[in-house]
């Protein structure tokens, strides 16, 4: 990796850190913007009656100090991964979120790979068969999945594959009380994963398919494609050697931008399928009016997006030789 690439990544890291700082400040003011005593807001309704706990919160976050001091305490706590303690679970917020993180990473990761793979493939096929039935079919399917509410699709999938056909489980991440180990456990988790990952992935499959198709068609009209044809290449070779790589660049950018949406989608999918990830945790926090936990999940998921964007930037840097200069 060249020095320029490292500097580019360094620059992106700093930008990401700034974004997180702004979100942290934003979080801080959101708590204060909520009506009522901030300690009570942070503790949520559940903790509202426990004076001792409230006092503990006030001390920890310096809630009786001036605002700038509170902000300082909040940020410096955050830097040390201290987001306070949830009353109900009696557990540090950060630990709770990290407990739930693997499940979410598994779900979103699977959905992401699935949708990227199928979406790009469908987009390429549609562009290749431009204005033939395969194109129309893929375009219409993409349009429909693009328009369908994710949570509804999840419910319908659960209804059909789980309730009606009884093929796949639609609840949780593992069979409760089965105590499986090793490979059996892996298979069990995978079968639980199929429905949530597929429904979460479908929307993004539609997104990537549309994008890839449009980008392929656009790239096909570029001058260097003419050059390739004039060399005497077969159409397939032109597509795979010249068009595809160029056409995928905007898809990579889009995939990076969609990371945030994937997290949002996880909140809904995890809620429907009772998948024990941070999305489900967010729903629980909402239900229990545990605002501190809610904002903690929000902050961590933002941090995940920042990280993901960074990864996409690095990938982009590798696939597009122009990036170092045009920064």
């Amino acid at each position: 990796m060249s020095i320029q690439t490292l500097m580019y990544i360094g620059g992106r890291l700093i930008k990401g850190a700034i974004v997180l700082l702004v979100i942290a400040v934003f979080n801080f003011f959101l708590i204060r913007a909520a009506p009522g005593d901030p300690a009570k807001v942070m503790a949520g309704e559940a903790g509202a009656t426990d004076e001792l706990f409230l006092q503990q919160l006030r001390e920890q976050f310096g809630l009786d100090q001036p605002l700038y001091y509170q902000l300082w305490v909040y940020i410096s706590n955050l830097v040390q991964f201290d987001m306070g303690i949830t009353y109900r679970q009696q557990m540090p917020v950060f630990d709770l979120i990290m407990d739930r993180m693997p499940a979410t990473l598994l779900l979103t990761g699977a959905a992401f790979l699935l949708s990227l793979l199928i979406g790009v493939l469908a987009g390429v096929v549609a562009a290749q068969k431009h204005k033939q039935w395969a194109d129309s079919f893929i375009t219409v399917a993409a349009l429909i999945f693009y328009a369908t509410p994710l949570f509804w699709l999840a419910m319908m999938a659960a209804l059909f594959f789980s309730v009606y056909l009884n093929w796949l489980p639609s609840f949780g991440m593992e069979t409760v009380g089965a105590n499986l180990t090793g490979f059996d456990r892996f298979i069990d988790i995978m079968t639980h994963l199929i429905l949530p990952a597929a429904t979460l992935g479908l929307f993004f499959t539609a997104v990537y398919a549309r994008m890839t198709r449009a980008s392929m068609i656009e790239t096909t009209r570029m001058d260097f494609v003419k050059t390739a044809i004039a060399k005497g290449m077969t159409p397939n070779r032109v597509t795979y050697r010249h068009v595809l790589r160029n056409a995928l660049l905007p898809v990579v950018t889009l995939a990076g931008l969609q990371a945030g949406q994937l997290i949002g989608g996880a909140v809904l999918t995890e809620t429907v399928f009772a998948w024990p990830g941070i999305g489900r945790l967010m729903f629980e926090a909402l239900f229990q009016r545990d605002y501190n936990l809610l904002l903690g999940v929000f902050f961590i998921s933002s941090a995940m997006v920042v990280l993901f964007n960074l990864i996409t930037d690095v990938i982009y840097c590798v696939v597009d030789p122009r990036i170092e200069l045009s920064k």
């Binding site: 979100i23 945030g260 949406q261 949002g264 967010m282 997006v305």
Partner: peptide, 8 residues
């Protein structure tokens, strides 16, 4: 744009 919009 970075913040997960639905979560926000």
């Amino acid at each position: 744009q970075t913040v997960p919009s639905f979560a926000l």
